[in-house]
Design a protein around this nucleic acid. Structure first.
Length: 262
DNA sequence: AAGTGCTGCAACCGCAAGCCA
DNA sequence: ATGGCTTGCGGTTGCAGCACT
């Protein structure tokens, strides 16, 4: 695959756009459209590469871009779409008229990720995860879901799995009547984990790309995994949402990482 | 007021896919 | 079938502005 030479090599300008450059670009596109980004800067008289022009237009100058802060509805939509689509920013942006993928990406990294990280955590049994099995109804007795009311309004979740793993592959949605309570999480941590060392911190890579982040899934008996889908409340429906999310995220065929030996 | 650290966002970089000669 | 060119995407960086000391 060939690659276009970078701006620097071609002696083209980099860095922030000036109002004059913006004006030139807008005027040119209004008159001529933007069929060929590579040829556009030369034709428009801009000392920029086509890539830079395209980015400036798409992310900033386009007339249909919505300005201002994201509404709570938009933020919620991003969170939900991210559950399903992952870091497919362009796909998420396609669902939010007037918002660009770059903007959504920035909002995610600066606001939403931080907010969710503060508010939601789940501990799952890594072995079950890697074996591609999830709790079936007959193993519910061995499965405890608890919310951590102590730390943040009952929005931490802990799943302490046991070693049955005899059930066939299923979906989380089948486990929708898992028990939920608001006991504190220290007890379950003490009972089942023995040492805080068994709860590895989520690494940065997980938040950027959960599916590609090996570390957060491979270290230790228990793995700490964020739950995105219970942003607002922790009622039963939200619990179902989060299970469905994890089903979509990890259990779908072909998306589980290779199973390590324990 | 000055210095320092933090945050948010615009822009860049590198890669991959699609197109076409 | 191959390889060059262009576009699009996701990850990352740099810097301006703000907050704090």
């Amino acid at each position: 695959m060939g690659r276009a030479p970078c701006c620097q090599k071609m002696g083209l300008k980099k860095g922030p756009w000036t109002p004059e450059e913006d004006q030139i670009l807008v005027s040119y596109i209004q008159q001529n459209g933007y069929g060929n980004w590579h040829a556009l800067p030369k034709q428009a008289g801009l000392l920029r590469c086509g890539k830079s022009c395209r980015l400036r237009w798409v992310n900033y100058l386009r007339p249909d871009i919505k300005r201002g802060n994201f509404s709570s509805e938009e933020e919620e939509a991003i969170i939900k779409l991210h559950q399903v689509l992952g870091n497919k920013w362009s796909a998420i942006a396609a669902q939010l008229p007037g918002r660009t993928d770059n903007e959504i990406k920035n909002v995610w990294h600066t606001h939403l990720k931080k907010r969710l990280r503060e508010n939601q955590t789940i501990f799952l049994d890594t072995k079950r995860h890697y074996s591609g099995k999830i709790p079936m109804s007959d193993s519910k007795a061995a499965t405890t879901w608890q919310t951590n009311s102590k730390h943040m309004n009952s929005q931490n979740l802990i799943h302490s799995g046991h070693e049955d793993s005899s059930s066939e592959f299923s979906s989380f949605t089948e486990s929708s009547n898992l028990s939920c309570d608001t006991n504190n999480y220290r007890s379950i941590k003490d009972d089942h984990l023995n040492s805080s060392d068994l709860i590895p911190e989520i690494d940065e890579a997980f938040w950027s790309n959960p599916l590609a982040s090996g570390n957060s899934l491979k270290s230790g008996m228990q793995t700490q995994i964020p739950i995105y889908s219970i942003a607002a409340v922790d009622n039963g429906d939200e619990m179902n949402d989060c299970m469905e999310f994890w089903y979509n995220m990890f259990i779908r065929a072909g998306e589980l990482p290779e199973v390590p030996e324990f």
